[in-house]
Nucleic acid binder design. Structure first.
Lengths: 165, 165
DNA sequence: GATCGCAAAGTTATAATATAACGTTGCCTG
DNA sequence: CAGGCAACGTTATATTATAACTTTGCGATC
């Protein structure tokens, strides 16, 4: 889970803009919430945003060490917990990995399309999915608190270059 | 089908029937697939079916030891891997836990309603969810291989007995 | 500007989950 | 009944995550 390829699904997207935009939004959201986006927290967010591929907590430790911080596991988990609480990153349970939230700052559920070949992951907001899940739950008398929707498959780029399909 | 979804929430459901039915189906499916449902595999399946609550791999080890088998982790993980391959159990990534499949033997996606209070988990089959996910994926040019849908919330029983809501 | 209180970060240790690797057993089949 | 292979036993270790306590440093108040 450490590969490097900063192309979402469009090869022409300006990834440096993704990062700087994510960091700026993070500053605004933390300020609005009266929370501190400390150096470590900002660094972890930046590292998470280096790609559109989910990264494991332990993948981040070397870079944290390089930057001169303590790099024991609690350091990165604290930062990740904080970022999750602020809605800035999501945890993908099926991968034990983390990814930057592409639309922080509004209350939402994230649904994820994860490419099984290249790892690139896109976050969706879908009323249709949300509604169908809500309907099913309601029918079962069930009140929804949290949704975990992680779809594994092939992204357009990897479908193109794959002759077995 | 929808009747069965709710069985886990009904206090009067005949659970011993759940278990024996699951075991019998397992025998049939393994036979049909030319696979061996060995003693350990059957025991693990039975243990998983003791309740409608997901169980961790390590939760099963003591009972496996009691039954006189080796109870090192590989034993239970091998059995669980086999049972998953045969479509007899599902793994819930958000809990690192396993649960019996309530309709094995047909090709399907399982969607899960997990009660955050009592842990009771129901498996759904829903064309609406399936369709909405398929539509979103297609729109993104994405081919679906595997779906992970785990919904956390309150089951009807726990809603009734909960005065904070 | 000193100090107090608290949130954040440092540090050490360990828990919880999962797999690698290799040896042994025992079932099926020819 | 021998040979091959799948299943299981066994030991060790990888991977992911948290507990618990100490130290640091920010920022509010005096």
């Amino acid at each position: 889970m450490t590969a490097q390829n900063n192309i979402a699904y469009q090869s022409d997207h300006d990834h440096s803009r993704c990062i700087s935009s994510a960091l700026q939004q993070a500053h605004e959201i933390c300020k609005a919430n009266g929370q501190r986006l400390t150096k470590i927290r900002e660094l972890v967010l930046k590292l998470i945003w280096q790609s559109h591929k989910p990264l494991g907590a332990y993948d981040l430790l070397p870079s944290i060490a390089e930057a001169g911080f303590n790099s024991a596991p609690p350091t990165v988990y604290r930062a990740l917990d904080f970022l999750q609480e602020q809605g800035l990153v999501h945890r993908l349970a099926s991968l034990n990995a983390f990814i930057g939230c592409t639309h922080p700052g509004h209350c939402h559920q994230g649904y994820f399309l994860i490419c099984s070949v290249c790892g690139t992951t896109a976050e969706l907001e879908s009323n249709a999915i949300s509604q169908s899940i809500g309907d099913c739950a309601q029918q079962a008398g069930f009140t929804v608190e949290q949704q975990n929707v992680e779809i594994l498959g092939r992204c357009p780029n990897c479908l193109q270059t794959d002759d077995t399909h």
